[in-house]
Simulated assay, not measured.
Amino acid sequence: MRIGVSPRRTQALIAAVLIAAPVLAAPVAAAASPAERYYERSFVLAANSRCGLFEPQLTAALTAATWQARGAALRAGGNDRDLAETASRARSRAAGAACDSQDLRTVGGRVRDAFAGWSRTARMEFPGERAGWSADRAVYARPTWRLMQATVTGASPVRFGVVGGMGRPDQLTAVVSWHGRSRPTGVRIVLRDATVATRPWLARELPPPAQRRSIWASGVTAADEGLLVKGRAAGQAWVFPATAADALSALDPREIFVVEYLFRDGSVARSTFETGDFAAGRAFLSMGQI
């Protein structure tokens, strides 16, 4: 997993990125392992941060692709510590590349060509191990899902993700249409507490209670019709603070998190979601609506 180059091979790395640039935007590049793709994208992203190679929209696209590559490397058997070292080496190598070099300018041009299609891409799927995220950058006149993962709790369909539209800011939201139950009195996201448990919890369940963190919904409204599963006439939209999206982005893509619904009778219903490429999806949305 250790991917790196000696100081004498900076030019060789730039040459490798020159070759890889036309396919940097592809989910899978035949000639590179997931860890190598993550290294290449991290190098270009770091070079851009230092040298200002790209405009903000392309930077957002490259950021999304880098998060994708990280998720692919982890799902291929990597671990977060090795990938953190990989990214650190990529940043160190980028720090040694001359911003005015012809090689780096050529890398910039080829990356622009590789990501040109992203600026015109309105919708994208970010698959995971068992569930994925659907992203949508199109402009709508009413609230719509910009990033969403769907599941069911019992007979009740649940959608979770980022809702936007109508000129209002994006909000992390859970929408549920309860079947045979009253409305919950409170809803919360439960996930690993990174300040207590620094290593990812990769079981298909939550970590022990002492290692969990809860983030409560900050409000609830009637869900707009466009946010509901087809065939459902009504539902509730529970909105979470912006810090919740940041907390989910910090999780390992192989981890799960749970949305819990608390009812007046003391019962709790739960919806389980896969973190997956949530961070990559958010970066894709940051390219702006089209």
Rank of each mutant, 00 (worst) to 15 (best):
1 M>S: 15
4 G>C: 04
14 I>A: 14
14 I>R: 10
15 A>C: 07
15 A>H: 14
15 A>M: 10
16 A>N: 07
19 I>T: 15
23 V>S: 15
31 A>E: 14
31 A>F: 13
33 S>T: 14
33 S>W: 05
34 P>K: 05
34 P>F: 01
35 A>E: 12
36 E>P: 03
37 R>P: 08
37 R>L: 15
38 Y>F: 14
39 Y>R: 07
39 Y>D: 09
40 E>L: 15
42 S>M: 03
43 F>N: 02
43 F>G: 03
45 L>T: 09
49 S>F: 05
52 G>R: 10
55 E>L: 10
59 T>Q: 12
61 A>R: 02
61 A>Q: 04
63 T>Y: 10
66 T>W: 06
67 W>C: 13
68 Q>D: 15
72 A>H: 12
74 L>F: 07
75 R>K: 06
78 G>E: 07
80 D>P: 05
81 R>V: 15
82 D>L: 11
85 E>Y: 03
85 E>T: 11
88 S>G: 13
89 R>V: 06
101 S>F: 06
102 Q>E: 14
107 V>F: 05
113 D>N: 13
118 W>Q: 08
122 A>M: 11
123 R>T: 14
129 E>V: 07
130 R>W: 11
139 V>A: 13
140 Y>T: 11
142 R>P: 03
143 P>R: 03
144 T>H: 15
144 T>Y: 15
145 W>M: 01
148 M>P: 00
149 Q>P: 01
152 V>E: 15
154 G>N: 07
156 S>F: 05
162 V>D: 09
162 V>S: 12
163 V>R: 06
163 V>C: 05
163 V>I: 02
167 G>Y: 02
168 R>K: 12
170 D>C: 03
170 D>Y: 09
171 Q>I: 05
173 T>H: 00
180 G>K: 02
186 G>A: 13
187 V>Q: 00
191 L>M: 14
192 R>C: 08
192 R>Q: 12
192 R>S: 04
193 D>L: 06
193 D>T: 04
196 V>Y: 08
197 A>Y: 08
198 T>D: 14
199 R>N: 13
200 P>Q: 06
205 E>K: 06
205 E>Q: 13
211 Q>K: 12
213 R>C: 01
221 T>W: 06
225 E>V: 13
229 V>H: 14
229 V>E: 14
230 K>F: 13
236 Q>F: 10
242 A>S: 12
243 T>W: 03
245 A>W: 01
246 D>N: 12
253 P>E: 02
253 P>N: 05
255 E>D: 03
255 E>S: 04
258 V>M: 01
258 V>F: 00
260 E>K: 09
261 Y>R: 01
263 F>I: 04
264 R>H: 14
265 D>A: 04
265 D>T: 01
268 V>N: 04
268 V>K: 00
269 A>Q: 10
277 D>Y: 06
280 A>N: 08
281 G>W: 05
288 G>C: 00
290 I>F: 11
